[in-house]
Amino acid sequence: MSTAGVPPESVTVDTLEQIARRNQTWSVMADKYGVENPVPPWKTSLDGMCDAIDRSCAGDDMGFTFKDRRDEEDALSVTRYADLPYPENQLVALAHSLVTRGVIDEAELRRRLDAVRARLEA
């Protein structure tokens, strides 16, 4: 899916909508299991991913700058993913940006999600 020029929030990414609807957010999970950490364990890895993308993708053909990433995150966090808290909205917005820019194909993402889950549950 490449939707250059189209506001990212006008595009539906079913796979991500389903994840958002299932709402396994950290606040819900932490409450359920009595965990006190304020942020999910994957947060620093997400930060690392954002920094790595900011460093490598701004100047290449993709032209995905730090500002683009943050603007799209802000737009998506008050529209498509308004019900998600931070940092889940940051993660889903990044995925959404990469899918709508055609960097990652949605079907490919879905297959990978299944594969990763199968691996973690093995």
């Binding site: 991500l16 994840i19 396994q24 957010t25 950290w26 999910p40 364990p41 994957w42 890895s45 997400l46 991913m49 889940e88 993660l91 889903v92 990044l94 995925a95 990469l98 990652i104 993402l109 990978r112 999600l113 594969a115 990763v116 889950r117 973690l120």
Partner: peptide, 8 residues
């Protein structure tokens, strides 16, 4: 979300 972070 954990799965999505790894997959992405």
């Amino acid at each position: 979300f954990e799965v999505l972070e790894i997959a992405l």
